[in-house]
Each structure stands twice: as structure tokens, then as C-alpha cells.
Simulated assay, not measured.
Amino acid sequence: MGKFTGKLIISDLDGTLIPRGGKISVENREAIRHFVSEGGLFAIATGRTPEAAAGYVEGLPINAPGVFFNGAMLYDWQGQKVLKTLPLTAGDEENRWPAFARECLKRFPEACLEVYTADNCHVVTPEANDDPRLPFEYYRYDHTELETLVDTKKTPWLKFFACDKHEHLEEYVKLAEEMGVAQLANGFYSEDNYYEFVAREVSKGSMLSHVREMLPGIEIIACGDYLNDKEMLEAADISVAPENAHAEIGKAAKLKGPAVEDHLIAWLVEKL
């Protein structure tokens, strides 16, 4: 038993634990090690794949299930196995997602469109359109013809992602409503130039209910900075946002700490 026994910190990565384009600070790493050494549980919640997250969090004492694909996957970090997936394409008997993706390819020639499956990121647009972040990420991705992914029962989609100018993404969202896929999904901006779809009622927050089932009686302290973190903050017992979080997230959080660059997690552990 330690002074943090019974508590779980679950943190978003980009903009919360890690400065965008940066690395986890020494201060945050030391605070997390101290928290875990005193009985605390630590996990991450991200839109990334487990493989992509691994390059950023290497060496951290992650000892609780983590949330990936913005809520579409629960993953046992220590056991390195998938515990649960909630596919975007489940129940889409009319196969509307591939049809929507085809239309996006026609209407948004500058976009980078990505289909995420449990084992890979499939970029279905030309290499010239690639999101500049891709070569610097810690995961494999393939340029894939969309038509090889249209059998969604054989290859379920966990997430459909677009990177484009914000004004183009607004049209992309309207198209999703027109084609009837928006009603099948939870759609949200994860950055100003990123829009993502996961399954309806799926979010980082909804997956916390499964974490609670696995860890009965745990007190959950959730940290996040952007719109895709909102449901997670609302579902937590204690919600924390950095001072430079999106304005809506700042309002949703019970606690407001320093910016990510000033070691938010270290501040939180000290406050706890």
C-alpha cells in the first residue's frame, strides 16, 4: 500500500503529457515513476495506435489498460494484447463507409485520408498528400488502394481520419451528414486540421466504463487538452486540463494546471 493506492491517472498524449512535436519531460517521467512506486496506476488515452504510442512512452511504468484509437480499442500494455475493440463499421449493413471514402477521394483532392484497422494505418490517398507528421511517427503505415479495404466484415475499420485545411474539413463533415454516415459515428476534431470518425457512442470517455469494470473501486483522474478528450474528462472522478487547452476543455475540467511545457503531470502528482 502506498499513498496513491486506489488512484488511476489516465492521460492524453499530445498537448497533455507530451508537447506537440516534443518528448515527455524528465519532470513528468520522474513524477509518474514516483506515483506508481507509491501504489498508483498510470495509463494513456490517445487517438494513436499502441505501436505509435510506444515510441513516445518508452520506459514509462504503464501499469493499467490504455485507450487507443480515441476509444475504439482497450489495450493491455503490460500483456501487449488487445482487450476490446469497437469497430466503426460494425452494423453498417449497407457498407456506407467505403462509399463515403470514395466520395471523399473525389471531392477533396488535397486531403490525406487514413483508414485504421486493428493492425495497420492504411493511407488511401496519394503519397503527395501525406500528413507531414507521418515520417516522424513511431508506427508503420501503408499506402493502400481503398478497394482492398471495402470488405469491412473481413477487415473492420476502427477509425476513419482526414487531414486537410479546416475549411475543407467543414465540407467533409457536411458530406458525412448528407451520406448518412455521420449518424453512424462519433465525429470530432482532434486538431484544427484533423477530423476523425469512430463508432457511434465511442470515445475515450465511453471506454473508461470498461476500465472501471476491470478495476472496481478505482478513482480515475483524467488529463486532456483537446475536443477528443471532453467525454473522458466528463467520465472521470477528477478532470485536469493544461492552461493552454482548448477553451471548451478548460471549461469542462475541474482542475486547471500549467501548460504541457511546464510539466502538467508533475504538477498533478505533487497536488495529489
Rank of each mutant, 00 (worst) to 15 (best):
L169T: 10
Y141P: 01
E93A: 13
K154R: 14
E51Q: 04
E147Q: 13
P65Q: 14
R20L: 04
M1I: 09
P126D: 07
T148V: 12
R96S: 05
C163S: 12
G6H: 06
Y138H: 14
D131K: 10
V124E: 07
N186W: 15
W157F: 09
L13E: 10
I62H: 09
D229T: 11
G217C: 03
L17S: 07
G224N: 13
V67M: 04
A245I: 11
E270V: 07
P65G: 12
A176P: 00
I9C: 08
K106Q: 11
W157C: 05
V123W: 13
L175K: 04
S37Q: 14
D192L: 15
H263S: 11
V181H: 05
A252P: 00
E196R: 07
R33V: 07
E127I: 08
D192N: 06
H246V: 13
Y195S: 00
K165E: 14
I24V: 15
E213C: 06
I265L: 15
M214Q: 12
K254W: 05
G257M: 09
Y141T: 13
E201H: 00
K204C: 04
T89N: 07
K230H: 06
G55F: 05
N129E: 00
V36Y: 02
E201T: 04
S190N: 03
S11V: 01
A64C: 13
A182Y: 08
V269C: 11
Y226W: 13
D119Q: 13
R212G: 02
Q183H: 12
L264C: 03
E27H: 12
M207N: 07
K7C: 13
K159E: 02
C121S: 15
E94T: 12
R20K: 13
T5E: 15
K154E: 12
G39L: 09
A54D: 10
Q78H: 06
L272P: 04
R29F: 02
V150S: 06
E248L: 11
K7N: 14
L60T: 07
I10R: 04
G66L: 14
G180M: 10
